[in-house]
Computed example of a mutant assay.
Amino acid sequence: MKDLVETIVKALVDYPDEVVVEELPRDNEVTYKLHVHTSDTGKVIGKNGKVAKSIRTVMNAAAVQSSTRVQLEIV
Rank of each mutant, 00 (worst) to 15 (best):
M1W: 02
M1C: 11
M1L: 14
K2L: 08
K2P: 15
V5C: 04
E6M: 06
E6H: 04
T7L: 09
I8R: 00
V9E: 01
V9T: 04
V13I: 06
V13M: 05
V20E: 15
V20N: 11
V21P: 05
E23D: 10
E23S: 11
L24A: 10
P25Y: 07
P25F: 05
R26Q: 15
R26D: 15
N28R: 13
N28C: 08
N28L: 10
N28H: 11
E29H: 13
E29A: 07
V30D: 00
V30P: 03
V30K: 06
T31F: 12
T31L: 15
Y32M: 06
K33C: 07
K33R: 15
L34K: 03
H35I: 08
H35E: 12
H35F: 12
H37M: 05
H37F: 11
H37I: 03
H37S: 08
T38Q: 13
T38L: 10
D40G: 01
T41E: 06
K43H: 03
K43F: 03
K43I: 05
V44H: 00
V44L: 06
V44R: 01
V44S: 00
V44F: 02
G46E: 03
N48G: 11
G49Q: 07
K50T: 09
V51E: 00
A52H: 03
S54C: 10
I55L: 08
I55S: 04
R56H: 10
R56N: 09
R56E: 05
T57D: 10
T57M: 13
V58Q: 04
V58E: 02
M59H: 05
A63C: 13
V64D: 14
Q65P: 02
T68D: 11
T68E: 13
R69W: 09
V70Y: 08
Q71S: 13
Q71K: 15
L72S: 06
E73K: 13
E73T: 12
E73P: 04
E73H: 09
I74N: 03
I74R: 00
V75Q: 07
V75A: 13
